[in-house]
Amino acid sequence: MSATLLSIRDLRKEFPVRLGAFGERAATVHALDGFSVDIVEGETLSLVGESGCGKSTTGYCVLNIQRPTSGSVIYAGTDIAKLDDDGMRPFRRDLQIVFQDPYSTLNPRMTIGDALAEPILFHGLAPKAEIRDRLRQLLADVGLSERFANRYPHELSGGQRQRVAIARALACRPRFIVCDEAISALDVSVQAQILNLLLDLQEKYGLTYLFIAHDLAVVRHISDRVGVMYLGRMAELARAEALFARPLHPYTRALLSAVPSTDPRAARNRQRLQGEVPSPLSPPSGCRFHTRCPLARDRCRSEAPALREVAEGQSVACHAVASATETNWENSPA
């Protein structure tokens, strides 16, 4: 087992919001509620879940782009969750992010070359004389010719822009990249290109990824470990093979069953998860999934289940799952 790169402990994030036509009611969105995980050097950890599950908030809080309400993120012996903008600056080189929408993450008034050169010059990672070589190499890394350096973002296709966004994240030679729905906005045939590119770059530079997605099928191709999140909490965390071969949490099973099948005959006969994700403004008591769970019992309504290891490399937060083998799936949705 390799070394732990980032150690995340009990991360919480709450957003105050104003409700009502005149903002007369104050309320709190519990976006992230006690998130803990160790991210291992060189691995890809994926977080999946529906909107409001806190997966993107996790990515932002780990990088301190959004300040966590409490909890710690230990990187290189420092708790970066407590740092302000200035304190965070030296760590930004190592910890990078690629956003979802390639159409809006590039400054429309800057050429691709300027956009890529800026972080290098700002952090003083290469002298000005070597910038040209560095740009050529960065563009080559993401499969673009150096002619793109003089183009503006609006002249590029979505896939090309996402390649530029990845090159920009790579510009500082980072160790860790958060991919926040990095392929969700792309066309199907381009998604595969970008996924493969991410895998190539990981091999070449030994990168560690936190890959955030809503689509379990996509995650399967890139992940060493997968965390399934629901309403700000981790429902299941497991090695990818185990999770897909033997999903234990009822929500994981429901998510898997919602993945569209490419077999037209199989696709017509499946059970669906009913209802919708409750509002994170007033999350359900106890286990937050109990309102949609086919296995819900009284205990689930009052007591939140803790994430515990039930099999080698597989942890579940569910009262109904006793162990990997002893669960009764008779009434389950999948």
Binding site: V188, S189, Q191, N196, L199, H221, S261
Partner: peptide, 23 residues
């Protein structure tokens, strides 16, 4: 190409997806 590049739940994990080059 479209069908091949669709990630599915039956693929082996950590494998490259076939993709259509270009745009």
């Amino acid at each position: 190409g479209l069908l091949a590049s669709l990630p599915t739940l039956t693929d082996r994990p950590m494998t490259r997806l076939p993709s259509i080059g270009g745009t």
